[in-house]
Write a protein that binds this DNA or RNA. Structure first.
Lengths: 115, 115
DNA sequence: TGAACTATATTGTCATGCAAGGTAGCTGTC
DNA sequence: GACAGCTACCTTGCATGACAATATAGTTCA
């Protein structure tokens, strides 16, 4: 029950994790925002709107984690491709390490046998 | 580098996840706030301050996910024990399901082979 | 008397996700 | 040539949770 609590909690849980997903998606390939939304949605569990992904990408740029390239498209407006910088790769590695600890902690707490 | 970005991101990532940790810790046993902080810290990856755990527990109570019992202690002030209600157990199950999807999505995106 | 530990609680600040809205290019059809 | 529908970008305002800082109070031991 209480679908409202669950919906709100899900939103909170995604804070930070969507940022990590986007950065991880850029690992080794350059992508543009609209495509990232489609890819993560297709991968499952990571559906997000454009109003979420564009601010994330802007922040990455501001903090020097990515560089951008504008590329004309025959299917619509020009696409802004994002690619990781060295700093972005370093930070991704650090974030994945922190993620691993928290993830394992939760999985431990939620599955450990009780006395 | 940029330890500031990483520290801030970590704070954001923990949103919602600490709530899940606390609820999961209450699965099958009743605990009090101060003890939850120690247990999760000992479990690793889930260090949080008391200023974080008490608002979480208050919210759980307000939303009917837990019931409380005040118990005198010989080692200090009285302890407020929290135990899951049926609603709390239902919600924990739903949250763990949502958690699993997001967790797997991130692990997929961050480890998949690239072309 | 006071330090150290146990135990609970609140206030104010900050960053993020998201709904909602806006702009603009390209394709096809009526 | 108007209009719908897809592609693609961006911004504003709101709600929410984590945390530092701070406060209160009981117990033990020096």
């Amino acid at each position: 029950m209480d679908p409202e609590f669950l919906a709100n909690w899900t939103t909170q849980m995604r804070k930070g994790l969507l940022e990590l997903s986007v950065l991880a998606a850029l690992r080794g390939q350059r992508l543009y925002g609209y495509d990232i939304v489609r890819r993560l949605a297709a991968a499952g569990g990571l559906v997000m709107s454009e109003g979420t992904v564009y601010p994330i990408l802007s922040r990455f740029k501001k903090d020097g984690l990515v560089e951008t390239t504008l590329v004309e498209s025959a299917e619509g407006p020009a696409r802004k491709y994002y690619q990781l910088t060295a700093k972005g790769r370093q930070l991704l590695a650090a974030m994945l390490a922190a993620w691993g600890e928290v993830r394992d902690g939760i999985d431990r707490v939620s599955t450990e046998r009780l006395p």
